[in-house]
Amino acid sequence: MKKIYLIAVFCLAMVSAQAQELKWHNDVKEAIAIGTKENKPLLLFFTGSDWCGWCIRLQKEVLKTPEFTKWAKDNVILVELDYPRSVPQTPEIKQQNYEIQNVLGVQGYPTVYFVKGEKKDEKFNLQALGKTGYVPGGPVAWLEVANGILSQK
């Protein structure tokens, strides 16, 4: 009986953990469509996921916390724009990421842009709302900055 109880608790924990996971998009056009439908801005996370120490630190201290997960589900559509050194990417994703990096003038990582996306005459436009990067102090400090940016929209 004890084993069945432990197995049930484990299964519930796994389902709960999976329900907590966030959906990070890598196709900006798809994310814009979702953001338009849900009336939410996009959070564009510019990262060097396999080499950038500050990017990894931002992920660990903020983007993978329960506080951020809850906030993100209510407030934004998440988009990861990755510039890895050893992780393969399709040519289309590479081109998309570099084009958006150039349009927004991103020069360092991590950079987090909040944008309003729209499709107009078969073209996609991004209106910058504000940007941030790594903020010391964990999720509370980071979310304070993010909420400040989003409150101006």
Rank of each mutant, 00 (worst) to 15 (best):
Q152Y: 12
A17E: 12
A141P: 01
V106Q: 09
M14N: 06
Q95G: 00
S151L: 07
E118D: 06
L12D: 00
F124Y: 15
A141F: 02
I149M: 06
V28F: 06
A31D: 08
N39Q: 15
K153I: 10
L104Q: 10
Q18G: 00
M14H: 08
D27F: 04
K64R: 04
K64S: 07
A31G: 06
L78N: 05
K123W: 04
K73L: 05
A141Y: 03
K131V: 03
P110R: 08
V9L: 15
K131W: 10
F68L: 04
P139C: 01
C55W: 04
L81W: 03
K153Y: 12
L143F: 07
P84C: 03
Q96M: 14
A8I: 15
N147T: 14
W54K: 00
G53W: 03
V28I: 15
G117N: 02
K40A: 03
L12Y: 05
K123T: 10
V106F: 11
L104T: 11
N97P: 09
G148N: 12
F124L: 02
V15I: 15
G53F: 02
K37D: 10
F45N: 15
K120R: 14
I77E: 04
Y5T: 14
C55Q: 02
I32P: 00
K73H: 08
G117Q: 05
F114M: 05
Y98C: 00
G48K: 05
K94G: 01
Q152I: 09
S49W: 05
A128N: 02
M1C: 03
C11S: 06
T132W: 11
V15T: 15
G48M: 08
L143T: 08
I93A: 12
N39A: 15
E122S: 13
P91M: 12
A128R: 10
G148K: 11
P110K: 06
P84L: 06
V112K: 11
W51P: 03
T132C: 08
K70G: 02
N39W: 11
G105Y: 15
Q59E: 15
V76I: 14
L63D: 00
V9N: 04
L42M: 08
S16L: 11
T65R: 01
T65N: 01
E67W: 05
L22W: 07
G133F: 12
S151M: 08
S86R: 15
S16Y: 13
K64E: 13
D74A: 02
D121F: 04
G48E: 05
G138R: 03
I34M: 03
S49Y: 07
E80T: 04
R57Y: 06
M1E: 09
F10T: 14
W54Q: 00
Q107V: 14
F45C: 03
N39Y: 09
D121L: 09
T69M: 01
E118Q: 10
A8L: 14
I56F: 02
G148M: 11
C11T: 10
V28M: 05
Q107K: 15
K153P: 00
A33F: 02
N26W: 08
N39S: 13
F46A: 01
K116D: 11
N26Y: 13
W24Y: 01
F68W: 09
